[in-house]
Design a binder for these strands. Structure first.
Lengths: 239, 239
DNA sequence: TCGATCCTTCGACGGTCGTCGAAGCGTGCC
DNA sequence: GGCACGCTTCGACGACCGTCGAAGGATCGA
């Protein structure tokens, strides 16, 4: 075991000590890989500046990168990095809120949001766990550490349940896309469902009024109907 | 509840981003209040420099200070601050070790060390907990949040046990000094026994060969005998 | 009252770092 | 092949920050 005596925390802290880098890192907290350009826009700096910062974060082992065509997608390096950000958040003053709306939206983003085209946030994690524990879904590939390779199948019971709310599982299966896997959300520290199934289920729930879209891109609000249906159909009770 | 989205971690991180300040903070991790001068020597800077850093740490709410005569004693502000330091330590590279000896000593300091004149470190916490759970010691004042006001009494059973290993509890009681309280160690996140009783017990254990003093001031090593006696007498088993 | 000790404030120096525009490199699209 | 796009590198500017010595304030002991 290693004690704090053994390590020099200053270099890592220095990486977090800049507003631009800090906002990039917090943007990565929900596990979604973001491109250098997206991170630059999020932080409000030029591409050149962003690139310099990302090089430092890479060098300091706080993020990883994968190249995909012209894009470079960055992610937090691991749960320990997320833990640091969260620990510091706990003793940091609230950010300047320009409007009450902004803080309400931040809170809403925690509750439910989209991750690309599927449900994330607390609701996403809760639903995913409920589906697993009720045997509506089962893991096929158990390489849990690499979300990119995760794979799930719908059980017979799950298929009946999904069809009952209007999800055409057969059609989802025929989609030219990964059927079902999971994303890991660093803030929730819990996974949520993605892939064609995650997208179809999410689309259906929004269509049926379980969730409503907020004013910012990824925000979702659980409706009263949604709260009830989630509990009834999936045994998923939101805090 | 507050999400990381809401706070700006950069200012706090900036406070940790300097080697001098970082070493001051880690020096405070074991809960012992240290004076500005001691912190300056620990960090290897002038008094002027240390003063400037401590002002910043105070302003950033990472430490608190109490004046005592000409001295100013600093402490970490709370467990959340300690948690941040430890979280960053976990992803920080080991400090340059000039010798193997140095790293062995750091490890040893974790296991057992003195805090002023009484036992601290893992052994100190474990012994304290064992004494409480075996009803050798009981809390008198339960204001757990303020260690300075904590107070304990020895039970009859405890007194017999202590006398059996050669601690003169009567003499300890007559000492012009607080009888027994606890210190909070941020690294252990657990308290250990201090006061006249803590000092007398520690002195007796060292005298009787349960512990041996290391080469640096506060280092203690548990001997084989000590390991056995701690288990036999106090039911205290060290990991 | 005087000197010693502990600590802070002040001022100045030097180094580090964040920022951007311009230019260069690689990739994908038509 | 040529253009558009995403990203990185380079160079330069400016600001911030850690450092110390010297001087000043506060406290204690004699």
């Amino acid at each position: 075991m290693r004690a704090p005596y053994d390590s020099d925390i200053a270099p890592v802290a220095a990486l977090l000590a800049d507003r631009t880098r800090a906002s990039m890192l917090t943007a990565l907290l929900d596990g979604r890989p973001l491109s250098a350009g997206e991170l630059a826009r999020t932080a409000g700096v030029s591409a050149a500046t962003a690139s310099s910062h990302l090089a430092k974060l890479l060098d300091g082992d706080l993020v990883t990168v994968v190249r995909q065509g012209r894009h470079r997608y960055y992610r937090l390096k691991g749960a320990e990095v997320a833990a640091v950000i969260e620990a510091i958040s706990r003793i940091s003053p609230d950010v300047e809120v320009r409007s009450l709306r902004q803080s309400r939206q931040a809170r809403a983003l925690q509750e439910a949001r989209t991750c690309y085209d599927h449900l994330a946030g607390r609701a996403g994690s809760a639903l995913f766990e409920a589906m697993l524990s009720r045997d509506l879904l089962e893991a096929v590939d158990t390489s849990y550490d690499d979300p990119a390779n995760s794979a799930y199948e719908v059980t017979d019971k799950g298929e009946r349940q999904l069809e009952s709310i209007g999800v055409d599982v057969g059609a989802v299966r025929r989609a030219r896309r990964r059927f079902a896997g999971h994303c890991l959300d660093w803030t929730e520290r819990r996974p949520h469902l993605n892939g064609a199934l995650g997208a179809a289920l999410t689309a259906r729930m929004i269509e049926d009024g379980w969730f409503e879209r907020g004013s910012t891109r990824r925000a979702l609000f659980v409706t009263e109907k949604g709260r009830g249906r989630l509990a009834d159909v999936f045994g998923c009770v939101l805090g």
